[in-house]
Amino acid sequence: MLEHVAAILRRMGARVINSVWRLGLATRFFFLTLLYSGTCFRRPHLVIKEIFSAGVLSLIIILVSGLFVGMVLGLQGYETLQTYGSEEALGILVALSLVRELGPVVAALLFASRAGSAMTAEIGLMKATEQISALEMMAVDPIARVVAPRFWGGVISMPLLAALFSAMGIFGGYLVGVVLIGVDEGAFWSQMQAAVDFRDDILNGVIKSAVFGGVVTVIALYEGYDAPPTAEGVSRATTRTVVSSSLAILAWDFVLTSFMFRGAS
């Protein structure tokens, strides 16, 4: 009996130690990436290429999801607000929830599963097929040449994707609320404008999404770089990227929100 408990405790301990160890390695990886970012700024085309694969290729899913999330918000928000006779506040509800939370968070979650997993798989396969090794042997640092451009591509793409998501969502809310249901258009926009603040809401949303972009890409790149060079290893790393970056997004969202919106509303 006792040894069973001890075994369970030992397993738990091993897992915790392993997680802390990996977290430390990932942090070191992150600082190395920053350290070797010089190449990216000397050769912006490396980053542009990664903005294409991280940003442009995620565009469709972001725009479509944004539109639908906004339409659902419009519909649900209207149902709720109507009970209290304040349908005019629909604009506020849609805009604030998108700009502050749903835009950055949902866009980042979609980004993690669309671009993050692709990044992990790509780096993992580059490692499995010895492309990373080949880079080293060609005297080209893989962190500077492969990892850093992808990191900056993600950090730059993410706020733009989140902004597009929010804009699309507000348009969706407008479609359902104003065009379909018939909430007063003037009230919809003016109440929204009165309630949404550029610095407190929009700028903070942008900062959030840039942080999320960084978090997701660091996790994705680290998992790819760390993956055992086998088919199974890469597929497991891809899954881990999606799971841990989703959790990281939500955790960071809580931390950032508690700093940003403290006492503001």
Partner: peptide
């Protein structure tokens, strides 16, 4: 082609930000 796409993407993203700043929010920072 790649440059063009990235250009379109960045322009659209900045456009969305501008839309949020001007149409959705009040420009208190400025």
């Amino acid at each position: 082609t790649l440059d063009l796409w990235v250009g379109v993407f960045v322009a659209a993203g900045l456009g969305a930000l501008l839309f949020l700043a001007l149409r959705v929010g009040s420009f208190s920072a400025f």
